[in-house]
Structures are given as structure tokens and as C-alpha cells.
Amino acid sequence: MRDIYRGEVICPVCGHVQPKGERCRYCGSHLYHRKPNALKWGIIYSLTAFAFLIPANLLPIMEVIKLGKVYSNTIIGGIIAFLEDGDYFIAIVIFVASVLIPFLKLFILWFLFGVAEFDKWKRYRRVATNLYKFISFIGKYSMLDVFVVVLMVSFIQFGNLAEIKAGPAVIPFGLAVIFTILATEQFDPKLLWDKGGGKNERS
């Protein structure tokens, strides 16, 4: 928070501390205290991601064509099928990676927005910071499902015997993941510590 008090800014790209200005004297990047419109775009992106999660879960993500018969499975349907088969481990992995995490990320994001926005929620900012670290960490694994489908589609092409096609849910799912990442990226964790802060401030 010191930079704000001193009226100085850290360049977000090269990390050079300098007096506030338009551009970094070193690398020429845009300089700002907080990401501009962070909350606004965070909310918009997260809502968009959420919207895409609906078809991602309702439409089949994968179409298995076995002996000419099409078995199309939604994500949940696939998980249920695995559970019925007794493959609990795979079911749990898919459930966590494909259903739980995407939604959880959005909920966490919204929680972070809340902490940033409302003074009353500021007491959760340490938790929120950890949660932010967590979602930034897992962000890159969110496309797991899409990768699984892509791998399956490319591996299993046995013509009439067995064939796997990407279902219509893949695109909305991918979009949901992208928008979730965008929302996460847009969010500035420093916002968690703005306003009413100082308790945890070192100087």
C-alpha cells in the first residue's frame, strides 16, 4: 500500500517503482495503481462464463459411436455411468475437474468481488487472498475436460466399430473456462486490501 501513499507506482511489467505517470519510464508499459475496471469486467466475465456453463453441462460433451449406435453423454451422465460401473476414482476426478472446479471458481470469484466491494467482508481478506492464489493456480488446469475430449476424439477413430466425436457441449465448456480465466485475470487482488485496511499494514 506504500506506493499509493508515496504517490509512486510499480510498473506491472518490469516492477520499476516510479512516480505516478502515464507510462513506465523503463519499459513504456501503462502504469496504474489498480487494474482499471477490475471489478466491473470481473463480474461481466464471470457472468458470461456462468452462462456458458449451462449448455456445457446440459449438452452432451462426447458422442461415442459404437457399432453404429450413438451413445451421447453429458458430463454428469458420464460421471453417473462411471459410478454405475464402479469406477469411483475416475468419476471423482471428472466430477472435481469438470463440474466442481468450474463452478467453485466462479463462486470464489464472486466471493472475492464481495470482499473487495463490501467493507463488512474485509475480515475475510486473508482467506480471500489464499483463495485467489488457489484459483490462479488451478486456472491452467481447467481445460482438462476439453483436453480429455480432444485426446479421445483423436485416439478413438475405428470407423464403424467405434468412434468418438466431440459433443456440442465442448465449445460452451471451453468458452466458460476461458471467461473464468479472464475474470480471474481481470481481478486485482490488491483490491482485497484497499479501504479500511491498515490493520495488517506493516508501516
Binding site: 482499471p36 471489478l39 466491473k40 466475465y45 456462468f50 452462462a51 460452451p172
Partner: peptide, 22 residues
Amino acid sequence: VKKGRGINWFNLLIPLIALGIS
């Protein structure tokens, strides 16, 4: 400190379009 609040309805069109597409 610019918090970047103040979402107007115009901006909300993006998730709404996404919802519509979905």
C-alpha cells in the same frame, strides 16, 4: 485508486448475450 465499479446495463449485455447463446 480507481475501483472500476459502476457497471452499466450496456456492459451487462455481454453475459446476457452469452446466456442467450447458451
